[in-house]
Write a protein that binds this DNA or RNA. Structure first.
Length: 745
RNA sequence: GGGCGUUUAGCUCAGUUGGUAGAGCAACUCUUUUACACAGAGAAGGUCACAGGUUCGAGUCCUGUAACGCCCACCA
């Protein structure tokens, strides 16, 4: 709170020295982002230049210019934007502004994501505070509440996106759950069903008892927990002891697997034993299966086909029956009163107590193992057999006359070089994920989302884009995984399934910029859908950014209380400063430990630019940039220098190295232009200086300022645009569409 | 169990193709000179995790080790 710079010397001697009389008053004060940025935003809004059609109409972009497009990864309508979003917007806007200035037909298409499960649970929690459950409201009323919440979130998000300076084209805004996107979803579902790629199946799935819905494999996290490994026999007569951490599930066992090469148990393979386990009659068949690890536990595994995906696979291999013993509320469905209706945790104790009383428990030992947890709700996953809808990723089908699988389409798009992933090392991650991919469960027991376009009437089933004719049809109550609609995003936003001009012009999109944490959820699924439906890649380059962490490198979270609101940072330091702090030095895939000091440094830089301008404007009054005088060799060298820099920056930008480009520009502007060139040129600008040399220097300064502003505009759009508005020798009405100072490659 | 990343100045981090290291912040000295004290000038600070190797030369390439972190995976 100490330093308000004295400016008294200005008013005392306004006409002294080389300071011109014509520098606008505004430059007498330090740069103020808070007063300047809203005005610039207004100018951008009015110009309409973020719409490529307007750019063509106003003649700042050639009608036949090459297209460049990005679709904004749609933020979830679950609340407000965080620093991760700010980082995404900063990077994408930098790319977009660069391409627009290069004269490309540039489209950045914005939108939001309904984010089914996330939004629904958020609203459920809000209602809970008022003691209201969604069942009390009913489906329609509940959905109205969700939509209202979504609308409010949407409006907040839109204003935040604008505040970041993101030059998206709002006239093309989309929502993953609006009418146009809904048509795209139903069209896709129908086509995939017709091709046999979507099927309804009874399988063991990941049931989230807390969220009361099925979730996909990708939505399951593994957490290390301490547990007890119990070693026991089903009965006194049973020849093989087995080990488990979940004794309560053993009432659903139908087999025991031993390794066929294990001499201890080989003689029992093929035999079936009837036992009564904790009051439940079981028929256990001993099978030989290579997957049984002779080294672990007793070397024998109890097979519970209904409550373990691996056991289900084993059961399928050996023709063992599946018996469900746990229900959707994670309560027991079998047994006497000590089990029936009890929670699994209580049932576990009951079973252990029974084993002890029967003398069947041979060993109890502590063990560290992985527990499956639902990433959204945090609930412990209960594998259950259920009838759900799936996308078959391994099924061979006819794709434009070629036999292939969805998995193959995903692999080929990247392996064949049609998509470049940055940083490259994520290729491996991507391929590894594909190799391990199982069928994608796409149905959810949620109310908020795209209702599955399937109708039932008795034994009849209708799969269609619209509801069937006639009475008595009931639509499937479930909704689709939110990623199903996100997967269509690059082309559903451009009008697909209609063959629109936008689709022809802007698809495939040029680059997808998103976080590495959703490479599977989203990036892979977009490649799948685009390859399947359009037979082309959804984007040519994938630029993956990392996480924004706090200055200590910790993930930002509510429980740590270290969440930083980007709007607060903008209020304090300006958008340009925040953008620079989010871009400079942060390569693709690298996490960013955001410190406020870094932002402060760049807010000073904005002020430095302000003062560079103040000096230059004072020195270059009357200069006509279009009339280049014969330059003194020193000045010519400076012109050559910045031209070379422009080329280098262009190259960096085209190779997605803007984290380097930003830093180079910072150094050039501050430590070359200001510290060396301006300091060194003062002697040539005095009244007694040689007029020819003075003219040379003045032209050179105007040239350097103009080009510095252009090169910096993609990074710091606000301050550069604000300055541009005061330049007497500008060659475009707005900097955002001014020609880029290096020729296209 | 696999795969990947990180380890560079007190702190947070850059360092694109190999040529004896850079920025911001912090700390030190000087300067309020007519663009800017949200500044300028100057000085200081690093055996680039460790051990080998390739090379005329390695923070940068190769091998191994350690610590930390992340992702994936059906060891019950």
């Amino acid at each position: 709170m100490k330093n308000l710079p004295p400016i008294s010397h200005q008013s005392e001697a306004p006409n002294r020295g080389i300071m011109a009389r014509m520098v606008p008053d505004i430059f007498e004060k330090p740069y103020s982002p808070t007063t300047s940025e809203p005005k610039v935003l207004e100018q951008w809004d009015e110009s309409g230049y973020s719409n490529p059609d307007t750019c063509i109409k106003k003649g700042v972009c050639a009608p036949d210019a090459e297209a460049f497009s990005i679709v904004l990864p749609p933020p979830n309508v679950t609340g407000t934007l965080h620093t991760g979003h700010a980082s995404m917007l900063a990077i994408e806007d930098t790319i977009i502004r660069f391409r627009r200035m290069q004269g490309k037909k540039t489209l950045w298409l914005p939108g939001t994501d309904h984010a089914g499960i996330a939004t629904q649970s958020k609203v459920e929690k809000l209602l809970e505070k008022d003691g209201v459950r969604k069942q009390d409201l009913g489906r329609d009323e509940f959905l109205k509440r969700v939509e209202q919440f979504a609308q409010e979130s949407h409006d907040t998000i839109v204003s935040q996106v604008k505040r970041m300076g993101a030059s998206v084209d709002w006239t093309r805004e989309a929502f993953t759950l609006d009418e146009a996107r809904s048509l795209a979803v139903r069209t896709t579902f129908k086509k995939m069903h017709d091709d046999g790629l979507i099927y309804r199946g009874y399988k063991v799935i990941n049931w989230d008892p807390k969220g009361q819905t099925v979730i996909s494999d990708d939505e399951v996290n593994h957490e290390e927990r301490q547990a007890t490994l119990y070693t026991f026999r089903y009965s006194k007569d049973f020849p093989i002891p087995i080990a488990t951490t979940r004794p309560e599930t053993k009432v659903g066992d139908t087999g025991v697997a031993v390794n066929p090469n294990d001499p201890r148990y080989a003689e029992h393979i093929g035999k079936t034993f009837d036992v009564t386990f904790c009051g439940v009659p079981l028929s256990i068949k001993v099978v030989g299966d290579e997957s049984a690890d002779m080294e672990f536990g007793t070397g024998a595994v109890g097979i519970t086909p209904a409550h373990s995906q691996t056991d289900a696979q084993m059961a399928e291999r050996h023709g063992l029956p599946m018996v469900q013993v746990i229900d959707e509320r994670a309560k027991m469905m079998v047994g006497g009163e000590e089990l029936m209706g009890k929670k699994t945790t209580e049932a576990r104790e009951a079973v252990v107590a029974w084993l002890q009383s029967e003398g069947l428990l041979e060993k109890e030992e502590p063990i560290t193992h992985n527990v499956s947890v639902a990433e959204r709700s945090g609930g412990v996953i209960e594998p259950l057999p259920k009838t759900q809808w799936f996308v078959a990723v391994n099924k061979t089908f006819d794709h434009n006359g070629k036999q292939t699988t969805l998995k193959e389409i995903m692999r080929e798009s990247v392996a064949g070089g049609n998509i470049q992933i940055l940083p490259e090392r994520f290729d491996k991650t991507y391929f590894h994920w594909i190799d391990n991919l199982h069928d994608w469960c796409i149905s959810r027991q949620l109310w908020y989302g795209h209702r599955i376009p399937v109708w039932y009437r008795g034994e009849e089933t209708h799969v269609g884009i619209t509801a069937p004719e006639g009475d008595g049809w009931e639509q499937d109550p479930d909704t689709l995984d939110t990623w199903f609609s996100s997967a269509l995003w690059t082309f559903s936003t451009l009008g697909w399934p209609q063959q629109t001009d936008d689709l022809a012009t802007y698809h495939p999109t040029s680059v997808l910029e998103t976080g590495y944490d959703i490479i599977f959820f989203w990036v892979a699924r977009m490649i799948l859908m685009s390859g399947y439906l359009l037979d082309e890649v959804p984007f040519k380059t994938v630029y993956l950014h990392g996480l924004v962490r706090d200055e200590k490198g910790r993930k930002m979270s509510k429980s740590l209380g270290n969440i930083v609101d980007p709007l607060d940072l903008i209020d304090k330091h300006g958008t340009d400063a925040l953008r620079m702090a989010l871009i400079v030095g942060i390569g693709p895939g690298a996490d960013n430990n955001l410190s406020e000091n870094k932002i402060k440094a760049y807010s000073k830089f904005a002020n430095k630019l302000w003062n560079i301008t103040r000096f230059t404007l004072g020195a270059t009054e009357g200069v006509d940039l279009t009339k280049k005088p014969t330059l003194h060799a020193d000045d010519e060298a400076r012109v050559v220098e910045i031209d070379a820099l422009a080329k280098e920056i262009t190259n960096d930008m085209e190779l997605y190295r803007f984290y380097l480009a930003g830093e180079k520009l910072y150094h050039y502007a501050w430590h070359t232009f200001a510290d060396i060139i301006i300091e060194g040129c003062k002697e040539h600008l005095t009244e007694t200086a040689d007029p020819e040399r003075s003219a040379s220097t003045r032209w050179m300064l105007a040239y350097l300022l103009t080009n510095t502003l252009k090169l910096l505009h993609p990074f710091m759009p606000f301050v550069t645009e604000a300055i541009w508005g005061h330049l007497p020798y500008k060659n475009a009405d707005m900097l955002m569409v001014a020609p880029w100072p290096a020729p296209n490659k």
